[in-house]
Design a protein around this nucleic acid. Structure first.
Lengths: 216, 216
DNA sequence: TATGGATATTACCCATGGGTAATCAAAAGT
DNA sequence: ACTTTTGATTACCCATGGGTAATATCCATA
């Protein structure tokens, strides 16, 4: 009542925008809640009923915003990827040696992995999606792997990283980073920035120098 | 026919043993087949019907060997853990510096991660199990983490590993190792031994020396 | 105050798949 | 030869949970 009174004489075009914005916000709320539950309990243990209940609506209401449960899953992954990609692009824009760029990639990747959307990249399973969506996810995962390998190769080429196999190096680094999604808890002892800083150095500490790694 | 002829005059007590052995083999066959499918498709996409079909039996036959689908899942994880634990114990029996023992742990862990049972430790989800089994799994995972941390702390204490936080170091190393379960394919370019050797050096390359890692 | 579009609810459908009951066949024990 | 045990089959049950149809409500607009 107070709300309608405040808007009583407002332009009649504004509410239309508001309604659209409200719709987007609701869609996002559905996605956020679903993702939180997916991460907590695992996709298959979360029911559409539970997602709805937690949002104080009933199940069919959700289908105003997503066509299916799988559609939400796919959206979650894609949103996570978009956010990560955004931060990577912003971070890698500036130049520097291959090693220093790799360090920045590791830092921002690690930080992102501590967020719910970052974790979605690791904790949601593309096998729960249909063929088309799964193919998209796999392509993006390959791209991400390519970024690591390219940066490592770049560092080897410019001499900032000792000669090493980009494929295995990328696997090792990406593995350590992705694992963050499994062990990180929001109430843990380190902030995302501290984790990022730690990993940025830790995961590249063995890459400096000129000589290749060999068994002694 | 040839088979029965060969055993015609054998002791009547032997078949009893044979039957027990046959039973164990069948139980193992069920577990192996289920695990293979779990790894390939994900637990929730594998039906008991499919497991049975692939073994040329019908679904109820499986329930002669396991009480439930979840029981198979738990058994798979535990078998994987047992095999890993076995190899770790055998490997860490001999002495050496903390660093060299950590290297041996990494090597044997990486090798194990390329096997179906090794992958089960990472690709099967304890959230699909009931409370009791889940608690057991989580306890064993904590133990495993403890082995890494203890070895790292040992190396720092004896001077073979530069001062570093055992917790984060263990997370980084275990992450890289566990990730093998996600990317490894049996038809890949490297043998398990080569992967083990590579990782043993790669994941410990940054740990040598005396000075702690600091941002330059 | 009437209209229509958007959004929510109630009540329902139904495919899926884990698990079981009744039964049967074959081998083991006596 | 007979009975019992083991292990497999056929046929079925039924809880779960994603998704939908019909309907109601709200609200801006005319």
């Amino acid at each position: 009542m107070t709300r309608s009174a405040a808007n009583e004489n407002a332009s009649p075009w504004l509410p239309a925008e508001d309604r659209e914005k409200a719709r987007d916000q609701k869609m996002e709320a559905v996605q956020d809640m679903a993702l939180t539950l997916f991460i907590e309990q695992g996709y298959h243990h979360v029911t559409m009923n539970e997602v709805a209940e937690r949002l104080n609506v009933t199940k069919p209401a959700l289908y105003n915003y997503f066509r299916s449960k799988e559609d939400i899953l796919y959206s979650c992954w894609m949103s996570g990827h978009e956010r990560l990609q955004q931060r990577i692009s912003a971070e890698l824009g500036a130049g520097g040696s291959g090693l220093s760029r790799l360090r920045r990639l590791v830092r921002v990747y690690a930080e992102t992995m501590t967020t719910t959307y970052g974790k979605s990249l690791v904790l949601l399973d593309e096998r729960d999606m249909d063929d088309m969506n799964r193919r998209t996810i796999l392509a993006r995962k390959r791209d991400l792997d390519g970024v690591f390998r390219a940066l490592i190769a770049e560092g080897v080429a410019d001499g900032s990283i000792r000669p090493t196999d980009p494929r295995m190096t990328a696997f090792a680094i990406a593995g350590a980073l992705n694992w963050i999604g499994h062990w990180h808890r929001a109430d843990g002892p380190m902030t995302p920035e501290e984790i990022g800083e730690d990993f940025a150095l830790r995961l590249t500490a063995g890459l400096e120098g000129k000589a290749p790694i060999v068994s002694e």
